[in-house]
Each structure stands twice: as C-alpha cells, then as structure tokens.
C-alpha cells in the first residue's frame, strides 16, 4: 500500500510534468461550476460534469488515487486511472459551450464577427495548443521507422540464405526481428530489457543469456571483445553488494553458438583487430552485412 501511495503521489507530478491538458480540464470544470454554465446546463452535461469533478478529485488526491490503482490492478501505472475521467469529453463540452455563446449572434463572414468572435476563438485554440507539449516529444520509440526498414533489409538478406535462423544481434535488431518474421528465433527477446513485457510470461532468462545481452550492449558502445558487467549479490545479512565481472567476447560467442545461434550480427563499430582475433581463434566466417558484421560458424 505504501508503494501505491508513493506511486500515486509521484504519478501526478509525472502525469502533468510534460503537458497541461489536465489543467485545461480543471479550467473547464471551473467554467462549468463558476462560469454560469452549471445553472443552464442540460441534464446530460450536468451529470457528466458532476461525475467528472468527483473522479478528477479522486485521481488527484493520492489516497483515493491509490485505491483506484488497486481497483485497476497494479498491472497498470498511475496515468491509466485517468481513463476513468471523461477528460476529453468534458473539456470539449465546456469549450463547445464557451464557443457557442461567443458565436451565437455573429456571422463568421462579417467584420464585427471577425473581431468579437474570432479573437476569443483563436485565444482558446492557442490556450489548447499551449496545454500540449509544444511539439516536444517526451517519449522515444525504441526503433525509428527508418531504422526498422534498414534492419528489415538486413534480415531479408539473412533469409535469402534459405536456412532456419536462430539470431543473436545488437538490441535494435533483436527488437525488430520477431515483428519482421515469426520464423526467426532469438536467444532472448525484448523482455530482456523491457520489464513491462516480463509480466507476460513466467519465463526467466538464465545467467548465460543475461551475460550475452550485457556483452552485446557494451560491445555496441566500445567495439571491443573485452567488457565488464555489474553483478549484484546479497550476503547473509541481506545487504546488497555490487561487483564487476569480466566478460570475454570469445567465450560469449562460443556460448551463443552452443545455445544454437547460427547467425550472429556484431556491431559495425567492432575494431578490425578484434575481428581478426575472433577469426583466428574460432572456426567462424565474418563478413560485412549492412551496418553490422555477420558471424557464421563454419560448417
């Protein structure tokens, strides 16, 4: 319950941190209750406004928000309790009444109409625009559409070899591969880094696969075979300790081959001497494939 309350307290900050659309809803409710709209409102508008007001208060107050999150199950985060508030409908309804009153007596093609009606209308539209994020995206798609097309071309080339594919590759390729084709198998999926996907199954990745992911991640940045990963251990007293574990690229690639990977894409920024070391030590063939280096075991 404490975690829920904390989430509800911080959730409001996060929800309104990047946009002010909720502020528009609050302004609409103020207009309804104190701007004379409530007295003249039809029953349908009044009922919706009353419900919206109650639910908005419930979503803002952390205690009631925590109960709503409990009701909607902890599977969903704070912002989804706002689904219970007809925010879009209520804000649009109040805006429609406001604009309706302004435009009641004026034609849109007269000069008088232009000054007395268009200006408040434009002001309202501007206010609505300022309530958004002003074009600044506060989210990033994991892979852009352009990257997805590029990765698709790489995967198409792999498919042309006509063999069953069990792939290990940099994260962006692993993120796209199963969506591109259901015939490509992966050593690990997006649930390795997307914790929300982890709740879709009871599967747990073993230590080897987790090391493979860690090595690939650091290889994408460093271009080297040697790397490190952080290991967290818990001692008898329950205290957590962090230590570094050395990752050997050769060993990781051998592990991947043993797990069944027959196509391995290495990051394109791998240093040439590192690739020579690989070719000398393992029975593999290397060739460039798009922005990656394809490693295949010699049959």
């Amino acid at each position: 319950m404490r975690a829920l309350l904390e989430s509800a307290w911080l959730g409001w900050e996060r929800y309104t941190g990047n946009h002010k659309l909720t502020a528009l809803l609050l302004a609409a409710l103020l207009f309804f209750w104190f701007g004379g709209m409530g007295r003249r409102a039809r029953d349908a508008v009044g009922k919706m406004a009353f419900y919206t007001s109650l639910m908005t208060a419930a979503c803002v107050c952390p205690i009631s928000a925590a109960f709503l999150m409990l009701y909607q199950t902890r599977f969903y985060s704070y912002e989804w309790i706002w689904s219970l508030v007809p925010a879009t409908a209520m804000t649009a309804a109040c805006g429609a009444v406001f604009l309706g009153r302004i435009w009641e007596n004026y034609s849109c093609f007269s000069v008088k109409g232009l000054l007395r009606a268009c200006l408040p209308t434009l002001a309202l539209v501007l206010l609505v625009f300022l309530g958004g994020s002003l074009g600044q995206e506060n989210w990033g798609g994991e892979v852009t559409e352009r990257d997805r097309e590029r990765i698709g071309e790489t995967l198409r080339e792999l498919e042309q070899e006509g063999q069953e594919i069990c792939l290990w590759a940099p994260r962006e390729v692993m993120a796209c591969a199963r969506a591109y084709s259901g015939e490509i198998r992966l050593l690990y999926g997006r649930d390795m880094w997307d914790s929300a996907l982890g709740s879709y199954s009871y599967e747990v990745y073993d230590g080897t696969r987790q090391e493979l992911y860690q090595w690939m991640t650091q290889a994408e940045e460093s271009g080297r075979l040697e790397g490190t990963m952080e290991v967290l251990t818990v001692d008898e007293t329950g205290e957590q300790h962090s230590s570094e574990k050395r990752l050997d690229g050769m060993a990781c690639i051998q592990d991947a081959l043993e797990l069944g990977a027959n196509y391995i894409l290495l990051p394109g920024n791998m240093e040439a001497e590192e690739l020579e070391k690989l070719q000398a030590s393992l029975a593999v063939e290397l060739r460039e494939l798009g922005e990656y280096v394809l490693l295949r075991p010699l049959s």
Binding site: L21, T91, A96, L99, G100, W103, V128, N138
Partner: peptide
Amino acid sequence: SRERQGFFMNLVALFYLLGDTVYGAD
C-alpha cells in the same frame, strides 16, 4: 444545437492532435 456539436467534435479532434506527443493522453 448542431453548431455546438460541431465545436465539440473539432475540440476533440484538436485534443487528439495535441496529445500526439504526450504519453498517456488520449
């Protein structure tokens, strides 16, 4: 009032376009 229905639908369409970049918005 068809006019108010029209304002309502236009505002909903505007909110959809504005909420395009805002995670969690409709």
